[in-house]
């Protein structure tokens, strides 16, 4: 009895926010420190375009973004390929609305510490077997799903059996830092993050180098819940899509960072779904 009362009080305390705000989130994958600042600008833009109050809430992990989407805490989200597939499977009727221009042909780089003596090549670098290896976040498309798929495909073993040690750095920037320091010998990293950090001078080319690039795959996208029209009025989903596609301000686009947004559909992510199922991380009954 007392516990129920307590739970009720706690719940009340947490329901102070308005229900009719349109809320979105973004998976934290890069330059997290400025996420709030940058995405608040996006929220302002969307508020003006959509005529409802739009708020951004920050999350710490891929799974938190997916959970918030499932629990209707957010109605729109900037997901990675895999997290988007996961989220849309949990919310019936939800749709992929738009992807970044670059996301149509996204890539993962396999990087290595130069002390390994491994050299860049066009073919999958089989020499990485036996080394220590770090993925990015466990739920990342570019930091986990795709590299794991190509490792299994080319070496016919699960990563734990290919490498002498497998780590999950949790973040692309940390993957680079760890391979650069030699803590791990080889790693897999989102090519956009690599190029950004290279341009910013955070990468020392004498210490860490790109070995191989995966073939292109579809990645990040905006997804919206299926009940958005019912809640915010007919045609709302189309309005959101238009607002996203019309985002031309360089400053806003730099938040992602993308050149522009192009239309996307759930079907565009069928390859990701297949890959996820192939390596067993999308399998519900595993």
């Amino acid at each position: 009895m007392f516990k129920k009362l307590l739970a009720a009080t706690l719940l009340l305390a947490s329901f102070s926010a308005l229900a009719d705000t349109f809320t979105f989130t973004a998976i934290p994958d890069e330059d997290e420190a400025r996420l709030q600042e940058r995405f608040n600008k996006v929220a302002t833009y969307l508020t003006a375009q959509l005529g409802v109050e739009v708020k951004y809430i920050p999350v710490k992990s891929y799974v938190a973004a997916v959970t918030a989407f499932r629990n209707d805490q957010v109605q729109l989200a900037w997901f990675g390929g895999l997290s988007g597939v996961r989220a849309r499977r949990l919310v019936p009727g939800s749709e992929a609305l738009a992807q970044g221009y670059e996301d149509q042909f996204f890539k993962t780089y396999i990087i290595a510490n130069t002390s390994t003596g491994l050299k860049a090549s066009d073919k999958f670098p089989v020499g990485i077997a036996g080394k220590t290896f770090t993925f990015g976040s466990k739920g990342s498309t570019s930091g986990r799903l795709m590299p794991e798929y190509y490792i299994r495909e080319n070496l016919h073993k699960v990563p734990q059996d290919v490498f002498s040690r497998v780590g999950f750095s949790g973040d692309h920037s940390r993957t680079i830092a760890q391979v650069q320091s030699g803590a791990y010998q080889v790693g897999a990293v989102n090519y956009k993050v690599w190029e950004t950090e290279l341009a910013e001078g955070k990468v020392d080319p004498a210490k860490v180098t790109v070995l191989w690039s995966t073939p292109a795959y579809p990645d990040y996208q905006w997804s919206i819940r299926g009940d958005a029209d019912k809640r915010y009025g007919k045609g709302f989903t189309a309005k959101v899509r238009a607002a996203l596609l019309n985002m031309k301000d360089k400053d806003l686009l730099a938040s992602f960072p993308r050149e522009s947004f192009v239309p996307a559909s759930n079907n565009d992510y069928a390859p990701i779904e297949k890959t996820g199922a192939a390596i067993g991380i999308l399998d519900d009954n595993d």
Binding site: E32, A33, P58, K60, S61, G170, D171
Partner: peptide
């Protein structure tokens, strides 16, 4: 608890540390 996303000091600490913003 900020490490898993609640808006406490750990939230910013983990972010700053992860991003290599060691001054922050």
């Amino acid at each position: 608890l900020g490490f898993i996303g609640l808006p406490t000091l750990g939230f910013h600490l983990e972010t700053a540390f992860k991003q290599g913003d060691y001054s922050e």
